[in-house]
Amino acid sequence: MADAVSFPPRAGAPKERWLHRNRRAIAPWMFLAPGVLFFLVYVIFPIFQSFEISLYKWDGLGEARYIGLRNYEKLFSDRAFETSLWNNLKWLVLYLLAVPAGLFIAIFLNQTVTGIRLYKSLFFFPFVISQVVVGLVFTWFYDPTFGLLNTIIGWFGAGPLNVLGDPAFVTYGIIAAGLWPQTAYCMILYLTGLNAVDPEQVEAGRLDGARGWRMLWHVILPQLRPATFIAFVVTIIGALRSFDLISIMTDGGPFGSSRVLSFYMFEKALSEYGFRMGYGAAIAVVLFLIMLGFIAYFLWSMYRDERGA
């Protein structure tokens, strides 16, 4: 009788003990599980799905027809795709100007005068406002008839210039608009970094006679390496993600000359005139591969740094 009573709890005991024994190993996975699950469902799975859809001709509604790599073949002879690819490259290179510009402003603002907090906030302001607003402000600034830009260059006898209506200038015009908030972002990263710069090392450098550029290059910048790394990562990803500004400022125009890959993909697959899911997915795959190159490099260098540390 006594045995029978004490039996049920015993039955659960081995299992409980297993959980108990391994809780240190299991706990992190339990905490990670929701994140991992969502990451799998919303990031990893769609990546493979994109690969799959890119092999079909599909209008998003009817029957999908398997066409192998034909979408990719078409990409190579598609001039709009070529333009988008070049524009992506321009974005990548020129957007990086935000990093040195942010550093410059951060060093400039890293001093103690009355009201410096206010100045810092003012410089940070463009990053706080929405990209849509930035786009609108710059569209009005560039407006060929009423815009401020043409008034200003008019004083020097130049212009009128229709920045957003000229295929030769349009991408640069949009990148300039994008640099405004991105510079502010890099600035804030560097300002935080500058707080952590060791004053003793600066003092030591000064005793050894370093000043100006030499001080910056050999003493300050090495200590800012983590900030520089993050600034590069967010800027490169930001350049590849550029979409909102293009959509607001030009809608990809004039005649498609300011499109980038992400915008072109949206247009082909999801916009009012797009019904080519397969083709859009193929563009997405190309964009993914480009991003993968950068992301792999960043992960690798982070891993290397951690091992070195």
């Binding site: 560039y142 407006d143 060929p144 008839t145 229709n162 957003l164 209506g165 125009g253 004039p254 005649f255």
Partner: peptide
């Protein structure tokens, strides 16, 4: 020159 200039914007 029938159309306004810069209509693409």
């Amino acid at each position: 020159g029938a159309f306004i200039a810069n209509h693409q914007t």
